[in-house]
Design a protein around this nucleic acid. Sequence first.
DNA 1: GCCGTTTTCGGCCCGACTGTTTTCAGTCG
Length: 644
Amino acid sequence: MSFNAALVDRFTQMAKLMELLGEDSFKASAHARAARTIGDHPNDLESVAKGPDAKAHLTKIEGVGAKIADKIIELATTGSISELDALRSKAPVGLLAVMEIPGVGPKTAAVFWKQGGVESVADLKRIIADGSILKLPRMGAKSVEKIRESIAIVEAGAQRLHLGVAMPIAERVVGHMRAVPGVSNVAFAGSLRRGKETVGDLDVLVCTNDPSSAASAFVGMHGVLQVIAQGESKCSVRMAIRSDNGRWGGDDAGSATGAEASIQVDLRVIDEERWGAALMYFTGSKEHNVRLRERALKLGLTLNEYGVFPEDPSTVEPPQQRGVPSIASRTEHEVYASLGMAWVPPELREDRGEIDAFAEAASESDPVSAGGKLARRKRGASTGHEPPASAATGHARGVPRLVELQDIKAELHAHTTASDGVMSIVELATAAKRRGFHTIAVTDHSRSSAVAGGLSPERLREHIRDVREAGAQVQGIRILAGSEVDILSGGELDYDDDLLAELDIVVASPHAALSQDSATATRRLLKAIEHPLVHILGHPTGRLINRRAGLSPDVPALVQAAKALDVALEINTHWFRLDLRDTHARVVAEHEALVAINSDVHAPEDFDNLRYGVATAKRGWITAAACVNTWTQPALLAWLKKKR
DNA sequence: GCCGTTTTCGGCCCGACTGTTTTCAGTCG
């Protein structure tokens, strides 16, 4: 576990234990918040915590003050946090798992413990089985049955679904609902709409003049395993998942208990008049919504899922129930505008600085309020760089012109039957051309990737000739001869320089030795970036989401080197990789370095993953200009040529 | 414990739903 992951684990535990023990809830949420921002932090904090001015650097992180900084330093230097040890001595640690059960919060867990003698999930199952749970306060038959079902779901190995598994399910639901009579609008919301790499459940919103037909159509969908709730305004079901992890084998439904893998899908019926406010509310993130509400209050307004309302001293009843007209609610643009903001793309709604940035953009004509907001905001510690001025890389009026799917005009990482792809060079080029691309790079594996059919130097020389021939054969698209060259464990590349120099493009990627420590991995990847013939660093960490952690290099160091040497860092678009991840991409954006959004194509359908990579890039605030795949063919070829 | 364009002290989002109550606590998003 990386040091940051350890911090997230420790502070999360502290927050949970404080809630359980009934300590100050604001203190508990302060620790939970610190865990979240540390989890988002791109570089390893261990060296920061052990280095000079540790406290000053650490307190620059949002949500980290003097006390939490001390605890970070304590963990780095002693390997433990004494306050956490004290908390753990006050309450059984097994209760943390009890609190993970949906529907069981800190208060309920405390009752189980203090009045029911429960110290673990096993204890909880025991008092459910012998019925003694019914003697506890507020525990009726229905509550107990819900808890029993929730335990079963947790034990079936419920984990968040990959973005690329959840998206087709959501689109099927949306398509199904769109065809229901009376339905005028359908959309999915939640973390799926934000393009998060994993998704816990699906939220689907409909606008209809016939709610009961919509509800019955929803619960009657193919694949529905269980109807959890069916009302006029909200329905919840569990739907079966069929997932295929493709060339990595296995699947997401890896349940050892034999229970069918499923995902909860919520349907909500929304009035047309409040569509925008509801869409915002259900898109989240929770943290983004909280910030917006705080902003509304400062402006003398109240924001809820029904709209923006004038502030009201009456706290008894929500404004919409007293017939107070909303100031804005019909569209998201309207709602943001009423809060003095430009519309925020869903991928950015994570409370990572977007509120200030998009308020600044909207108020740019007002020099008093426009200046300095970003600068005042806390920045990640110890990157050693201030964020760039907004104007330089495609930022218009303070709002970044983020990369969009239709901007992508080149694929720079693709495999053919020469290694482990399923298409010939001509088939690959034809497929890329059909996508509207002007350039496709053939980058089969290098010799060390033996299981992937890596090419020997001799075989690569033949392959280059084959690529040139195909180029003459297929018109209307430029086919580049390249290689996805293994970065060996010490940072050396898998082919000699004279061979690499014959290639139009070199993508250097780590494939083995993915458990190296952070410092070794950083040296290894830096060496590849510094290689004069390398254009792109492919899937830099080698992680597989929900499968393996991969490398944890010092990303800011890699980005600075890549920026200086004109190397692009890849966002690999396969939903199993999404590597670089969103928070890493954000570092690239802040340093105005380059990314390559590549689909690592092995089969024709891999091109379809592009949207997941674009979503990840947007979550990292990557502009179109910063993505080499959006460039014109002459610009792209000129960039490649500089390394030849 | 953190934080600051009405604050270095005194706040810290808002509503729905559920199940259990007899007016509301707990959980969730």
